[in-house]
Structure formats: C-alpha cells, structure tokens
Amino acid sequence: MTDGIDSASGMTGMVGQLMHLKRYERPDGARMVRNRQNIMREVRELQRNRRKSLGDLLELNMPWFFAEPRYGIAALFVAFAALQYVGINARHSARSQTGIYTNPGTLTAYDRTTAPAYTSTNTISYPNLPGNVPLFQDNRFGRGDDVQFVGRIEAGQ
C-alpha cells in the first residue's frame, strides 16, 4: 500500500514536471500582435456604436449611488420628501391670478358698477297680462279657475 502511494506520488511528480514544461509552449509573436490588434479594433468599433443609456450616465456620474444601493434609495426618499414639503408650502403661499383663485375685482372684463341689474339670478318675473282675471271667484264647484259648464251666460248678467 505504501509502495503504491509512493509510486503514485512519484508518478504525480512526473506529471507535475510535464505540466511545468507546458509553460514553455510559446505562441507565435506575430499572431499575438495580430490578435491584440483585432481586439483593439473591435473595442473601438464597439465604443463608436455605444449609445450611453440613462443608466450608464447615472452610473458614471453618480457612482456612489450604485456602489451602495441602500444609501442611494435612502437619498432618493429624502429628496422625494423634501420635494413634497416644498410643494405643499408653495401651494399654500401661492396667489394665482387665474382659475378659481382669481379675484374678480382684478379682472378688467368685470365692472361691478356698470353691470346690469337684471342679471340677478333665482328670481322669476311673470308677465303682467291685462284682463287675466279668474272666471269664477266662487270655490263651491271646485277650484275657481276650473272650466266647467254651468249654463249660458248672458251678457250683462
């Protein structure tokens, strides 16, 4: 058994030596130069065709954001909260000159002094017709303005 192990380790040592010799395999210099040139040419072509996406631009200009995403997300949240705060304050202090915030007195098209009175709303004006008298004043037969046949009415009666 021991012999077997020793033999095996000896053989492994020989394999190791053979592997070591493989380091002396040298590529052809001209081929290597050509290979490097091909790489550089392809890299330049890629660079020419490369369109920087928004993500790439952000990553280049804000590397801290992508290095520690949790801090980046926290920073985004703080920025969002700050914008909300500023927005709320701005709405409270705004004096808009248009829309529902408009003060009508400032509009040139609106002149309170010359505005016609009949523009008042929620009033009904009935026409004042002459001779609009009820036929019957008596309510014995129902409503006085109901038209019912009660006989001939002679003129002068």
């Binding site: 020989m14 053979l18 010799l21 002396y24 395999e25 040298r26």
Partner: peptide
C-alpha cells in the same frame, strides 16, 4: 493545434529530469 516549445526548455531542470 499546438504552440512550439521555447528553446529555453532545455535549460529547465524538469526537462533534464524527464
């Protein structure tokens, strides 16, 4: 499709052993 051995291999002790 192998690369050729460098001539320096002959100076390596492992080569001499083998």
């Amino acid at each position: 499709s192998l690369d050729a051995f460098d001539h320096d291999i002959k100076t390596d002790p492992a080569y001499h052993d083998l």
